[in-house]
Amino acid sequence: LVVLFILSIGFIIPGVAVAVRRLHDLGWSGWPVLLALIPFVGIPAVLILMALPGKTAANRFGNPTGVEVITKQMAHKYGFIDATPSTPLTIGLIVVLVVLWLLVDWLLTV
């Protein structure tokens, strides 16, 4: 448990930083990250917020970095693979993450 605690502390700070930057991409402040502190509802709410599409125009936090619109024709021309996840795949991954989260929680309480 001590190792797990140390690892979780090591992941919390970068995780919060990434979440705040992602919310800045949406044009929001970083304060909604604190929603994650609400039991059962907070973490899924923050994950949903972070899954929203970002803004391609500048906002109060600055210009977006690395925004380049590529059409399907351009992607085909340069040999890129369309790796856009389908909706069933996304839902399946979310379900797997929730099940793993509940399983780890159950294992820690047993």
Rank of each mutant, 00 (worst) to 15 (best):
L26I: 09
P14S: 01
L107S: 06
G15H: 05
G66R: 15
F40I: 14
I91S: 02
A19L: 09
V16L: 03
I91L: 06
T84G: 03
L47V: 05
L23I: 02
L103S: 10
T87G: 03
I94S: 03
T56N: 14
I94F: 10
L49N: 01
L97N: 05
L1A: 13
D25F: 02
V67L: 07
Y78K: 10
G27Q: 04
P32T: 04
W28M: 14
V99L: 15
A57L: 09
Y78L: 15
A83H: 06
V18G: 04
H76Q: 09
V18C: 04
V46L: 13
L89C: 08
I12S: 11
W106F: 02
P53Q: 04
V18A: 11
V96A: 13
L35G: 03
L26D: 11
L103T: 14
P44A: 07
L34V: 05
V46F: 00
V20R: 14
G54P: 04
Q73H: 11
L34S: 12
G30E: 08
A83D: 07
V69H: 11
A45D: 08
I13T: 05
P53R: 13
A51G: 14
K77I: 03
D105W: 15
H76G: 10
G79K: 14
V104I: 12
L4K: 10
F5D: 10
N63P: 11
L89M: 06
G79S: 10
S86C: 09
L47P: 00
L7Q: 13
F61Q: 15
K72M: 09
G79M: 07
V110D: 10
L26E: 14
I94H: 10
T65C: 05
A58L: 08
S29Y: 14
G62F: 03
L97H: 10
S29W: 13
W28G: 02
A51V: 00
D82G: 07
I43T: 12
G92I: 03
L1D: 08
I48A: 11
G27V: 02
P53S: 05
P53F: 07
P14G: 00
S86P: 15
L89I: 04
G62Y: 15
I9Q: 14
W31A: 11
T87W: 09
F61G: 07
A75P: 11
G79Q: 07
G79A: 05
G54Q: 12
F11H: 09
E68L: 12
K72V: 11
F11P: 10
L1Q: 08
I91D: 09
H24Q: 14
G92K: 12
L52M: 01
I48G: 08
T84P: 01
L35D: 01
I43Q: 07
G66F: 02
I38M: 02
A19S: 13
P85T: 03
I94P: 04
T56M: 15
F40K: 04
A45K: 08
T109I: 09
V67Y: 12
N63I: 08
V2P: 01
P39E: 00
V18L: 12
L26F: 06
L52P: 00
Q73R: 14
P85Q: 06
P14F: 05
L102F: 03
I9H: 12
G66Q: 14
G79R: 05
K77R: 15
V3Q: 11
A19F: 08
W28F: 10
A51Q: 11
S8A: 09
A45R: 13
L1G: 15
G30R: 13
T71L: 08
V110C: 04
V33Y: 00
Q73A: 07
I6F: 07
